[in-house]
Design a protein around this nucleic acid. Structure first.
Lengths: 208, 208
DNA sequence: ATGTAACAATTGTTCAACAATCCTTCGATT
DNA sequence: AATCGAAGGATTGTTGAACAATTGTTACAT
């Protein structure tokens, strides 16, 4: 029984992830309300949700816009990821949580075998989500899922690039193996190196 | 010129931190709107803000309530803190950022000298905020300030306890010295130990 | 070209209404 | 007496319309 505002927010989140709404685009309350068949007030509540997730930015008296990456934001996002993911993997995790990481790795392999680029991307996100889930913290999980949502929004082009994830598969496998062997320091190092490399790539892609 | 909704949210945040609104208390839209002289819709927007900060919980069709600690939440909050604070201190930081940490330590000493318990508490929060600020990440900073707001809400009683922070002063000093000497691993260890001890204490206090 | 005054469009906020949902009270039934 | 269920009241969820405040733009005068 999700509320109408929640469904509006979900719809927008979807369109943001799909790249239908591009960064910088303006979201006008009245037209959105009409298009979705809801009231302006409801749209506003949805905006409040999305703004709290940084998917959308409010310019007072000017309107809300799809969030766009400012210089330094790529680094900022990766700073959060390094903090959250590395500490999570350092703490190990329950066998089920580790199994979830493994499952994400396999999901990625299947997607690669099927030449499913989009599947590869979501599998990668599942992988990193599973890493954070190792910590078993509700709050860390929501932090991570918000960061991932931001990345979907910003790096949409990059994820469309086919072999962008190609290398990641082996990385994830290696990290997962280390994790399963309980070599946590090594796993953390690998993950950190991965994140640094990934940041570098994303920074390149985003400079144009 | 903050919006009305923002001011309502600020007012509520204040009352939450002050302990005027206690965990579990119900916040009725209509009465709040009347008391603050604003519209129900505006109150709702403020609620959306606070809910995104976990200061308040929405029970659909039932109303919003001041967030209350469920079993495991103390541990959860400290899991976030360990993740964010420890990684931040491990990365060192600019001289100005380190100076800010030092300033928070001195602020705490002054408060202790003046027997100002409340000042001791806020100084401690400044200290940990400054630690996270070492990382120079906007997102980590907002995450931390939300966590601190949660702690203010939950542990209000504890902060009223005078010598609750007494030991913390020396801890902070020691951590700060290690940081200033650029002994980052040692500083991280000290901080981690501090957090573990703090969690233990808070857990005790909260079990009644 | 520059500044300014009117103008249109959009947001911020209020108000009033109504449907949907929840909680309680009060019976009715067994 | 206890249980169940049906009204009743209260509050939330959502709508629609209105208006003030602010911004951006256009047209005009200098």
């Amino acid at each position: 029984m999700p509320s109408v505002a929640d469904r509006v927010a979900d719809e927008l989140r979807l369109q943001l992830a799909e790249g239908i709404l591009l960064p910088g685009a303006r979201l006008t309350e009245s037209t959105l309300a009409e298009d979705l068949g809801v009231s302006r007030n409801t749209v506003r509540e949805a905006f409040a949700e999305l703004a709290s997730e940084r998917l959308v930015v409010r310019h007072p008296n000017r309107g809300v816009f799809v969030a766009s990456l400012e210089p330094g934001d790529v680094h900022d996002v990766y700073t959060v990821r390094r903090s959250v993911e590395v500490s999570a993997i350092r703490g190990g995790g329950s066998p089920e949580a580790v199994a979830a990481v493994r499952a994400a790795v396999e999901e990625g392999k299947r997607a690669a075998a099927a030449n499913d680029d989009e599947g590869l991307g979501t599998a990668n996100q599942h992988f990193h989500g599973a890493i954070v889930a190792l910590a078993g913290s509700r709050r860390l999980n929501t932090i991570m899922s918000q960061v991932l949502a931001e990345m979907r929004l910003f790096f949409h082009k990059a994820t469309l690039d086919g072999h962008f994830y190609s290398r990641y598969l082996e990385d994830n496998e290696e990290i997962c193996v280390a994790l399963e062997a309980n070599e946590l320091d090594r796993a953390a190092e690998l993950l950190l190196a991965y994140l640094d490399r990934s940041e570098e790539k994303q920074t390149e892609v985003h400079e144009e």
